[in-house]
Amino acid sequence: MILAPGTAIRVKDDWPEAKGPVHIRTPHYLRGRPGTIVRHLGDFPNPEDLAFARPAAKRPLYHVAFSKDVLFDGQGTTDELLVEIFGHWLEAA
């Protein structure tokens, strides 16, 4: 299922780097944080497998918007962040 633009999501609060060698493309500052789907960018081979030369299934990649105020400031800025996140890192808000 492809998430529709406007869907409220949360980035999983997972820290696989604590468990062993990994390569992940989900920045630490977004883990556990709420965001909104902007659009589905396409399906791309999972970099977490590509990095270890394992067979890499294609996964949906989304542009996800985050409030900078929620992430960092808490002082009412309207500035935002827009980040490519793979679907398997997203959960329902």
């Binding site: 493309r25 989900t26 920045p27 960018l41 396409g42 791309f44 970099p47 990649l61 900078k68 309207t78 500035d79 935002e80 962040l81 827009l82 980040v83 490519e84 996140i85 793979f86």
Partner: peptide
């Protein structure tokens, strides 16, 4: 003016 920071993390 809103600043939108685009963190280029993946395939684009």
């Amino acid at each position: 003016v809103k600043i939108r920071v685009v963190d280029s993390t993946a395939d684009y």
